[in-house]
Amino acid sequence: MEDNQKKYTELANRIYDLDGAVYECVGSSLGRTFTGGRERTVRTLSMLMYTKPDGHLLRSELALISNMARTIKNKEEKSRMMTEYNEILMEIEKLPDVFGKVDILDDERVRLNLAAKREKLSENDHLVICISRTQGSAGNDIGFELADNLKINYYDVEIFDQVMKRLEADKDAVNDAENFVDFNKYTKKSGGSLKTRFREFNRYHGLPKQDAVFFNMSDLICNLAKTEDCIIMGRCADMILKNNHIPHISLFISAPFSVRVEHIMAVRNMNLKQAVRFLKKMDRQHRKYYQFYTGEKWGKPENYDLCINSANYGIKETIDVIRRMIGK
C-alpha cells in the first residue's frame, strides 16, 4: 500500500512538471491545465489515481495536456513532450485497476460474435449476419448488396415464406378424425372452415399457426447458420441464434423518421400521409413481433453488435462500414 502511494506521488509530480513544460513550449493564452500550487495539485492527482471510480477524471486531465502538446510547432520539443507523456501513461497503466483495466466484455456474447473472433474457429463456424432494420431505412437494400459483395446467400421474409410453403407442401394434409381429442374446444376458438381448422390443428400439433411457423422457421434459420455463410433479414434471427449458441453478427439499421418517410414516398409512390401511416404501422408490427417471440425490446442497442444510422452514410458507405467491421 505504501509503495503504491509513493508511486502515485512520483507520477503526480511528473504530470505536474509535464504540464508546466508543455505550457512553456506552447505559450498558450489558454493557460496551464493545473493552476494550483504543486503540493495541492500533486495531492489531488494522487487521490485520482487512488480512487479508481474517478479514474476518468485523471484521464481527462492527461488528455488536456496531450492535446496541448500536440500543438507545439517545434518538432523536437513536441517529440520530447509526447515521449514523456507516453512514458507517464505507460506507468499509470501498470497500476492496479486504473482506467482501461476493467473491461466491459460480455463473455457469452463474445463467444457468439464472429466479428470479435476475427476468424472462423472451425469448419462449423460460418459468417452469419443478422440484420434488423426499421422500414424505410434501406435495410433490405443494404443486406442484399452486402450479400452480393460478400458472395454469400441472402434470406428475407419473402424467401423464407417460399421455403416454408415448400416444406408445408411436403407434409401430410390431414390426419384421422379419431386421433383428435378436443375438437369442439378448438373449433370454437378458431376461424375458417371446419375442414381447414381441423387440418391446421393436426398439421401444427395443436399450436396456433403463427407460432408453429415461427418455430419451424427458427429450425430453418439454425440449420442455415450451421451449414452456410449467409445474411438473414429480420425474423428474430439474432435472438434465435443467440439462444441456440450459434455464432453470428447482429446489426440494427435505422434512420430518422423524417428521412424514412421521404424514402418510402419515393420508393412506394406514396403521399406524405400514406407514408407516415405506413411506417408507424410497420414499426409497430416489427416491435410487437420481436418482443412477443424474444421477450426483448426491438431496436435496443444492447441487443446488437452494431447499430447504424444509414442516413448518415447511404447504402454504399453503410455496406463499407459493415465490411470493415467484419474484416472483409
Rank of each mutant, 00 (worst) to 15 (best):
187 T>D: 09
250 S>G: 04
223 N>L: 06
213 V>H: 11
176 D>M: 10
240 I>S: 04
199 R>M: 12
192 G>W: 07
185 K>Y: 12
203 R>Y: 13
248 H>M: 08
234 G>H: 00
242 K>C: 05
195 K>R: 15
196 T>P: 09
162 Q>S: 09
236 C>H: 06
222 C>Q: 07
235 R>D: 06
224 L>C: 04
177 A>W: 14
205 H>E: 10
234 G>M: 02
242 K>G: 09
208 P>N: 05
182 D>F: 15
234 G>L: 01
163 V>A: 07
244 N>G: 03
206 G>R: 01
231 I>T: 01
162 Q>Y: 11
197 R>V: 08
205 H>P: 04
242 K>W: 10
244 N>I: 03
181 V>E: 09
186 Y>I: 06
217 M>H: 05
186 Y>L: 14
234 G>W: 00
248 H>Q: 08
253 I>F: 09
171 K>N: 11
247 P>I: 01
237 A>P: 04
198 F>K: 14
238 D>M: 09
188 K>L: 09
232 I>R: 05
180 F>L: 03
172 D>M: 13
178 E>A: 11
165 K>Y: 07
186 Y>D: 06
234 G>Y: 01
176 D>L: 11
247 P>Q: 00
169 A>K: 14
257 F>A: 02
163 V>D: 02
161 D>M: 04
161 D>F: 01
164 M>T: 06
185 K>R: 15
249 I>A: 08
176 D>A: 12
241 L>D: 02
232 I>E: 02
191 G>D: 11
224 L>S: 03
209 K>P: 04
161 D>G: 02
168 E>V: 08
227 T>K: 09
249 I>P: 05
190 S>E: 10
204 Y>Q: 05
227 T>G: 04
218 S>L: 02
236 C>F: 05
208 P>K: 07
209 K>I: 12
205 H>F: 07
185 K>H: 15
169 A>V: 08
255 A>C: 06
212 A>W: 15
224 L>F: 05
215 F>V: 00
242 K>Q: 07
174 V>P: 12
232 I>Y: 08
171 K>I: 12
225 A>M: 08
221 I>D: 03
222 C>P: 01
220 L>N: 03
162 Q>K: 15
173 A>F: 15
177 A>T: 14
235 R>C: 01
226 K>F: 09
227 T>H: 10
171 K>V: 14
244 N>P: 06
171 K>L: 08
226 K>Q: 14
198 F>D: 07
197 R>S: 14
174 V>H: 15
167 L>T: 04
244 N>T: 10
227 T>P: 02
252 F>S: 06
241 L>P: 00
169 A>C: 11
195 K>D: 12
201 F>P: 05
211 D>E: 11
223 N>T: 07
183 F>T: 09
165 K>E: 13
172 D>P: 10
224 L>P: 05
197 R>A: 14
213 V>N: 15
227 T>V: 07
205 H>N: 12
182 D>Y: 15
183 F>E: 10
187 T>W: 09
248 H>T: 07
208 P>T: 09
164 M>D: 04
238 D>A: 02
173 A>I: 13
219 D>E: 13
215 F>S: 00
254 S>F: 15
